[in-house]
Write a protein that binds this DNA or RNA. Structure first.
Lengths: 346, 346
DNA sequence: TTGAAAGCGATACCAC
DNA sequence: GTGGTATCGCTTTCAA
């Protein structure tokens, strides 16, 4: 590969001059600049990234830590982030924690092994001198345990943190859930079954809050026994629906709806309802959350809340760039509301 | 950040000795090694990646070019690749071509703008001195247009190439399609409708070949009028099914099956059949290809062929590492067969 | 406006 | 076994 030195020799100038031209310095003669630029063009010279990174403080590289690339939403988040960095001319390096393959079933948030893995990833990234780090979390994790936040700008994407001053952008679960329930009420629903999740999960906790707020606002009684706890998958969706039925939910009078905290559990509810030959969207309505691909393919198509993944990604990237440039941020964290997708299940 | 020099000074030895220890050279005294290792441990010293990359020929970094991260299969391919590189201790840098957002609808394979984007990505990667490159292609592209194949080891993942000696690993579409049709025949199917694709797409072409081979092998007549061309999406799946019906497919005698070249088109067929109140899997069977998430969620669940994405990824990574190490490869390309997933649609 | 030279942090060759 | 030092390709004073 051709080096700075060689093109300097070819042009009969010093390396310093060539370097100045490449870096857009103004202290170079008009004629010299043009002449050298031409040679650079012709030779297809590209600066050596390593050499540059060694000397300069900024590497134009940002590090992306992802919990698991096969996790729902992650690809679209990445797409948003990389779209932004393409414009700013940053390179992106990945650290893939691969939590699904490493800690199958249910690993614990904040677990020692996990924290260690995260910090190892951060060290790696720091070793290659990234200008900043974005952490894409799955599972609505609350990230409170990262040790070296401060050494380089850091933003959490699709997750949150209780540590003060750690920037993050996540979805507004409370408002989204509230909006969905308001819509359901406007459609005349009066009896709600909800398939929630453990409150340890921030999404679960906040969606429940939103639900309760909307119910109270509209003076509809909340029946605690019809709030059951699932584990975000199809199987527990099915089981929770069965539990609702055991408790007599289907015998309630009034328009009934089952609000599932994600689409997968809603699919489990479909399974149960189909088994019992209950017409979904007619006898009982069902709504989900996430707007996964499957939501449009189940029968009937599922009404759900679409997560603005692309926007979340873009926003995170924007925040990081601002942090790196030292631009003061208006806010340190953002919550973006989801979009209601009306389909046939209501 | 602490440097080699500093730890050398701290230990009262030369940088050369420390460097030798770090790089596992054997020409170092037992006692010295232990003493220095201890200091390295205590100080948390990590070698500067840039400096090392500048001097050494290998950077332990591999470049990953991806057509589009939101494309079906890409995340799992990446998961397989990164799992392998985690073991070998390689870092991974991404270049995301983002073809879906940049060339919406249908961009052309081999198009000038596209080729330019690919070569730009390669140059980027070369500038940061990657040891090798993996290209994850979407759309079963045949990659014949990359200019600087040779400067660094290069392998195509989930695609192929007609350029001699370019290593690739893809799926064995012919065999997979053949296997699927054989299974269908073993289930007593005699009338086949097929929703294929343009033959410009290598997957489409080969799946058709496999279909024909299986039919001929079993002496079942191929009815060309029942081979219709879709565009891999739900909508054209629906339209193609309608076309089949216009041609009288549903009035044929014998056990009928519609073989769709992917799951999305199969879902379109479901739409049409549901509309006509035809019992899927009873009156007419349907099979897809890909085993996307939706396949398990449509009603009835779809019989389809699962693509061994993880394995393809792992194999590509393995090939690349071998190439980098100069290990002779037994073969320059691999075709991995898909796995039949039996569900209720047959 | 241009250039000489120091140095970034490591590796590797060659003396001792 | 250990140490001195040239070198990788670039950026960045400081002089000229």
């Amino acid at each position: 590969m051709i080096s700075l030195k060689e093109i300097a020799k070819q042009c009969g100038v010093s390396v310093a001059t060539v370097s100045n031209i490449i870096n857009g310095k103004t202290n170079v003669g008009e004629e010299t600049r043009a002449r050298i630029l031409k040679v650079i063009e012709e030779t297809g010279y590209a600066p050596n990234y390593m050499a540059r990174g060694l000397r300069a403080t900024k590497t134009q590289t940002i590090g992306l830590i992802i919990d698991d690339i096969t996790s729902f939403g992650t690809p679209d988040l990445i797409e948003g982030i990389m779209g932004y960095f393409e414009k700013t001319g940053n390179k992106v390096v990945f650290e893939n924690l691969r939590v699904y393959s490493k800690w199958p079933a249910d690993y614990q948030n904040g677990t020692e092994a996990f924290v260690k893995a995260v910090n190892a990833a951060i060290s790696q990234l720091l070793a290659i001198k990234v200008d900043g780090i974005i952490y894409i979390s799955a599972h609505g994790r609350v990230i409170n345990y990262v040790s070296n936040f401060t050494s380089v700008p850091f933003v959490i994407c699709y997750g949150s943190s209780d540590v003060p001053d750690v920037p993050y952008v996540c979805i507004d679960d409370v408002k989204s859930s509230y909006d969905l329930v308001e819509y359901l009420i406007s459609e005349g629903m009066t009896k709600f079954g909800v398939i929630a999740s453990s409150k340890a999960n921030i999404h679960g906790k906040e969606r429940l809050d939103g639900y309760k707020m909307a119910m109270e606002k509209n003076n509809i009684a909340i029946d605690e026994k019809y709030i059951v706890i699932g584990k975000w998958d199809r199987k527990t969706g099915y089981e929770c629906c069965a539990e609702l039925f055991e408790k007599g939910f289907h015998n309630e009078s009034g328009k009934k709806v089952i609000f599932c905290f994600n689409d997968l559990m809603a699919a489990g509810v479909y399974d149960y309802l189909n088994e019992k030959n209950i017409k979904i969207g007619e006898e009982i309505s069902v709504v989900g959350f996430d707007d996964r691909e499957i939501a449009a393919f189940v029968n009937p198509p599922l009404t759900t809340m679409a997560i603005p993944l692309h926007e979340i990604g873009t926003k995170s990237a924007e925040m990081l760039v601002n942090k790196i440039n030292g631009t003061e941020l208006e806010k340190n964290n953002f919550s973006i509301p989801c979009r209601l997708i009306k389909r046939k299940s209501v």
